[in-house]
Nucleic acid binder design. Structure first.
Lengths: 147, 147
DNA sequence: CTTAAAATACGAAATCATTCGTAGATGCGT
DNA sequence: ACGCATCTACGAATGATTTCGTATTTTAAG
């Protein structure tokens, strides 16, 4: 008995999620929220992170601190503790982390059918001309690789 | 110091996740795993779901049952309990549920930048010609809408 | 040096999701 | 009707993540 969900879609990953995240676990939702701030602001103090968080929703200072400490222990952020006030920065660039999260999401939600996912996505979003052309270029590039 | 995340991307959703999921909460990971089975197999008994689950990993029968009961209480599945052996089916079609999950993922992980997400996706996946052409058609359709 | 303000460390509560054990109901074969 | 296999119901343990309270440390000002 087989589970058949994919229809016209057939995708091969060139690289596994595990390979792209060597050493680092995937961030949890709360951790990702902090990473987004770190990616945007660069190296910052706990207070700066917490203030950014509080623009979105109320979060206690020690909550933010604790999460950053956990993330440090997981290797998701680096910490400069040479001064009293520690400065945190994301350990990995956004692309790499987002790609790893995307791979997992694609697998769990679309069972690996990348094309299906793109169609769902474009079906519900208005996209700019510039973006469309960048995507076309990427498609052409894929074409060359396949040929 | 700045990590620039969005560059040329600018997206507007035409519909919010909440709008597309009127009435139904988003499934959790475990619930989604069961939904995938229901979508593939159609209306089935708890035992059938559990057997499908056990092809992937060991799960106790009552675990599967409990999850289905929870999903029923959330409205994620429908249940026919007219017979002794209940029969469950997904309450929503896969497209609608996956789209809602995709919207949330896009927001939390890519901060809404759909184009960035597509680029990340295509950057790491080998895609079939058929799939590429379907995506091109969708791009052209978007073009028309934008014009 | 003393104190106050502000930071870090960390245990533990709170929350959410998953897993399972046990109790009780149901139906089937004999 | 009896007993066994199988089902549903459901409380509760487990596990993961998030949140916070409290203790301690550090720095800088007076």
């Amino acid at each position: 008995m087989r589970y058949e969900v994919r229809k016209t879609s057939y995708i091969l990953a060139t690289e596994t999620a595990a390979m792209s995240q060597t050493q680092h676990p995937l961030p949890t939702d709360g951790e990702l929220e902090i990473l987004q701030i770190l990616w945007e602001k660069g190296p910052v103090t706990v207070r700066q992170v917490n203030e950014a968080m509080n623009l979105l929703r109320p979060v206690g200072y020690t909550t933010t601190l604790k999460l950053l400490q956990i993330m440090d222990s997981k290797g998701l952020v680096s910490r400069d503790s040479s001064q009293k006030i520690h400065v945190y920065a994301a350990a990995l660039p956004p692309d790499q982390t987002r790609k790893a999260l995307l791979d997992r999401f694609l697998e769990t939600t679309f069972q690996g059918a990348a094309g299906e996912m793109v169609l769902q996505l474009l079906g519900g979003h208005r996209t700019t001309e510039d973006e469309l052309s960048r995507i076309r270029k990427m498609l052409d590039h894929q074409d060359n690789q396949n040929a």
